[in-house]
């Protein structure tokens, strides 16, 4: 086990020594600041309407948590998918293209182990990036509204609307960010799977982004109403159910069971593809 962690440390060292890894973090902070400035300048029109329309006090529920979840809702799908695909799409394909893979596999390490290390690295990155994003959004929310108040949670795509006081709201926010992190590993898995083919890293990234985008469009368009169970973004959206007043745990667990199964399937298929490849320039 110690050996496994030593090897994983090597993968993490490579990931976090690259500038590109931090572009995701930097881009998120930049986008968060832009959204915060827009909120400061133009207020929270639709959110305000929804709060007041529900008969609640806007002053109370316009809190750091509400601001943070709004920022997160805007930015995670804008940038999250892009950066996760970028990192996971690179992780095998780029090393194969650059010739690093030949150096690594001249060692007595199996391809399975090497891919597992890489998969865990990009999944860990997905989780970490979401946590970073959730808590920097929260910090920015605090600078705008300070500590305390309520939490107005809204996830329109799964019709979740809920009001919380500060303590329970903070708990729900923290829990939902953990589940959102798990959901986003699915994007990493798709990019990772494509990365195992003999293709350009950019092709793996674009392929993963395209898949998620098409999946999302099909879910939101009416004609796929009866086939939603086939669409991955339906399961990815399960994190939002954590914010509902009555958490539907069976539905959430079912969603994450599907995500888990798809992740394992994509890893296994990626491994099978990679295992069958001859590594020679």
């Amino acid at each position: 086990m110690t050996l496994f962690f030593q090897q994983w440390y090597g993968e993490l060292l490579k990931l976090f020594s690259r500038r590109r890894t931090y572009i995701g973090f930097g881009a998120f902070v930049a986008l968060e600041l832009i959204i915060l400035l827009l909120i400061k300048k133009f207020g929270m029109g639709p959110i305000q309407k929804a709060i007041v329309g529900s008969g609640q006090s806007f002053e109370y529920y316009f809190s750091a948590l509400t601001v943070a979840s709004t920022i997160m809702g805007f930015a995670i799908f804008l940038l999250g998918a892009l950066f996760l695909s970028l990192v996971a799409g690179d992780i095998v394909a780029k090393e194969g293209e650059d010739g690093h893979m030949r150096l690594l596999l001249a060692r007595p390490v199996s391809r399975f182990r090497l891919l597992l290390l890489k998969y865990l690295t990009c999944s860990g990155y997905a989780f970490l990036l979401v946590q970073f994003f959730a808590w920097t959004s929260f910090l920015l929310g605090l600078t705008l509204r300070g500590w305390g108040g309520g939490f107005f949670a809204i996830v329109p795509e799964i019709s979740v609307v809920a009001f919380y006081d500060w303590g329970p709201g903070l708990q729900r926010y923290a829990l939902s960010s953990l589940y959102l992190g798990l959901s986003m590993t699915l994007i990493s898995s798709i990019a990772f799977f494509l990365s195992c083919f003999r293709i350009k890293p950019a092709t793996a990234t674009i392929g993963a982004l395209t898949y998620i985008l098409v999946d999302f469009i099909m879910r939101t368009s009416g004609f796929m109403e009866n086939y939603q169970f086939l669409l991955l973004t339906k399961y990815m959206a399960c994190w939002g159910r954590i914010l509902a007043e009555n958490i539907d745990w069976p539905l959430i667990w079912r969603g994450y069971a599907v995500i888990f199964a798809v992740n394992i399937t994509l890893f296994t298929l990626g491994y099978a593809v990679f295992e069958s490849r001859d590594l020679k320039s």
Binding site: L3, Q6, Q7, Y9, G10, L13, K14, S17, R18, R19, D98, G99, H100, R102, L103, L104, A106, R107, P108, V109, L114, K280, S281
Partner: peptide, 28 residues
């Protein structure tokens, strides 16, 4: 076995020492 197989391409963003560390970890 120790090998130089085709052109040895190292991780440019790591030091020589770190490269050796990463590679040796794969040999346990």
């Amino acid at each position: 076995i120790g090998a130089i197989y085709e052109a040895a391409v190292f991780y440019d963003y790591l030091s020589g020492w770190q490269n050796l560390r990463v590679l040796c970890s794969l040999s346990g």
